[in-house]
């Protein structure tokens, strides 16, 4: 299953692709092009992480400008679209988006002679510009974004910190007290922020919420000192989870497996390791962000395999 999921993340999974084709094409029309050559290793590109070749912010190569890049994508996409239209094919917006998506990948890979991993890192760094969708690890707080204006004076980061404390088992009245807020105000925050997440089609609010969740947030001093009770061994497990990605994958695998066996996975982790859901999610977010920023398909697949095998 993970293999499949993983394949679909990379966008090169034969079966996923097949599913997305119209169901009723004749059988012999599928698979004319084969996937035989698709699993080329990335080993030829090992020198690419030198860092100097790419702009640290956009991850575009430095030997061309973004305008040049866009112009190239534009001309290839337009030519394709024109050809399709000449053939009488009716293109929908999503088809056009797809054409651009593919040409962006193609041009980037060709111009930078890079691996698929590098291409994916670049794609995530630019998901907002390309598709209007935020990717975890790449979003910055933008004070002009109306979705990010504080609610009753509480910004998203502070709201996240409060939600995290409450999620970790601290009674919400204590959290309110520490912030000098009445529960009625907390309930407003806890309604308006999720509403904004639902309204924001770019997922910036949701993604930032997740990013903050992965931070320690101890600089929000009012909340820094209220902690749920935790045993020494639980503290050790938590530390291990933060520093040993394979241990984290094991727990994540076990947590999911617990659900499959009629148990509450969050409770199972709490019972066995003393780690609560909020603490668990914090570490999960930390790894997710790290994964996006340093996309490395070999390592990801190794970790996912570990998740499914061990427990």
């Amino acid at each position: 299953m993970f293999k499949k999921l993983f394949g679909s993340i990379l966008g090169n999974n034969e079966e996923e692709n097949k599913q997305q084709q119209p169901q009723n094409q004749h059988a012999s029309q599928h698979h004319e092009d084969n996937y035989d050559d698709e699993y080329d290793d990335d080993e030829n590109y090992e020198n690419e992480d030198d860092g100097d070749a790419y702009d640290p912010e956009t991850l575009h190569g430095k030997h061309y400008t973004i305008d040049q890049f866009n112009a190239e994508v534009e001309s290839r996409a337009k030519a394709w679209i024109a050809r399709e239209e000449r053939d009488g094919v009716k293109l929908e917006q999503k088809d056009i988006d797809n054409i651009y998506f593919n040409y962006r990948r193609e041009v980037y890979t060709a111009w930078n002679n890079c691996s698929q991993d590098q291409m994916l890192r670049w794609e995530m760094a630019n998901s907002m510009t390309h598709m209007g969708i935020a990717t975890s690890g790449f979003v910055k707080e933008d004070s002009s974004n109306p979705f990010l204006q504080p609610v009753h004076g509480i910004d998203l980061r502070t709201y996240t910190a409060m939600a995290k404390k409450i999620g970790s088992g601290v009674d919400y009245t204590l959290v309110c007290k520490a912030m000098n807020l009445e529960p009625a105000i907390w309930e407003e925050l806890n309604t308006v922020w999720p509403q904004r997440m639902a309204e924001d089609t770019s997922f910036t609010v949701t993604t930032l919420f997740g990013q903050y969740y992965g931070e320690s947030l101890d600089d929000i001093t009012q909340l820094a000192n209220i902690e749920p009770e935790m045993s020494d061994s639980a503290k050790e497990y938590l530390q291990k989870m933060k520093t040993d990605p394979y241990f984290y994958e094991e727990l994540e695998g076990a947590r999911q497996a617990a659900y499959n066996y009629g148990m509450d996975g969050a409770q199972w982790i709490l019972d066995n390791f003393g780690i609560n859901l909020a603490q668990f999610q914090e570490v999960a977010m930390m790894y997710m962000e790290d994964r996006n920023k340093n996309w490395n398909s070999n390592e990801i697949s190794q970790r996912l395999n570990h998740r499914t095998e061990k427990p």
């Binding site: 009753h152 004076g153 807020l181 009445e182 105000i185 309604t191």
Partner: peptide
């Protein structure tokens, strides 16, 4: 005395 140490904006009811 400060009941709430925040500046209220337009929320649901408050």
């Amino acid at each position: 005395f400060e009941f709430l140490s925040v500046k209220l904006t337009d929320g649901i009811y408050v």
